[in-house]
Amino acid sequence: MKKREALWGWILISPWIIGFLCFTAGPMLTSLYLSFHTYDLHSMEFVGAANYQRLFFVDRIFWKSLQVTMTYAVLSVPLGIAASLALAVLLNQKVGGLKLFRTLFYLPSIVPGVASALLWQWLLNTDNGALNQVVEWVGLPPVDWLQNEKFTIYAFVLMSLWGAGGMRMVIFLAGLQGISDNYHEAAMLDGAGAWRRFRSVTLPLLSPVMFFNVVMGVIGSFQVFTSAYVMTGGGPNNATRFYALYLFTTAFEQFKLGKASAMAWVLFIILLALTGIQFAAGKRWVHYEGASR
């Protein structure tokens, strides 16, 4: 009976295992192998670590793409988290029409990537874009958001504030709703004001959710592709050459599949390292309810 149960267990999870072996584990090893070769779909040649050496010591665009992506992460993750948390706190108040507001706040997040890129391309256009109308109304000269390399990154951050926060907001809201009123009542009896309760009760209890959102936000920054591909194609002067975009064009436009595989592994290592650092740092500020720490 036990054997039969175990056998069925394996049979039922076999779709995932087969998929994992064919589409994840096998390809991972293959891409590691490829990263030590040059390959253009026709001929393959072993080159040792030359792909990696090129990336680190010769390829300036590689460094540029890392810089663009990191700058974007440093700006968009904290700002995005602060905004999503603020929205979630607002949605956790006791006023009417919350469902309608929640829907409105979430709506931008389900706009498909290509459509939202086209929409922003138009909102940000220099001559008569909606954003420049606001800029001019304030009394400043029009800004060439997508053509001037000084501004592009801010354009992308602004876009992420509009369209990438819905999921985070919902996760924060669920976290807030999971906090028992008892904590707040106890703090209130101790004479804590609203801000003090937020800092000393809400934030610590929310820290696991916050941590999840930070980790996913950093990973998400390294996946920015569609918006950059559609809106700017990486320009001007590589100012929007996000890492995922550079990897894609290296692989599927230049067909340097060995180099692109090396880039994929560098990406993997970077994300592992960043996530590891966050987990180590998280031990200091993430508070798990019921944990003995």
């Binding site: 995932w16 996946q223 990897l247 692989a251 599949l257 994929a264």
Partner: peptide
């Protein structure tokens, strides 16, 4: 196996994108 499956959610798809294209 379950832990392995959760771990794959963190894997950037670029690591498997090129070999899958080759398959």
């Amino acid at each position: 196996v379950f832990g392995l499956m959760l771990a794959t959610m963190m894997l950037p798809h670029q690591v498997t994108m090129i070999p899958n294209f080759m398959i």
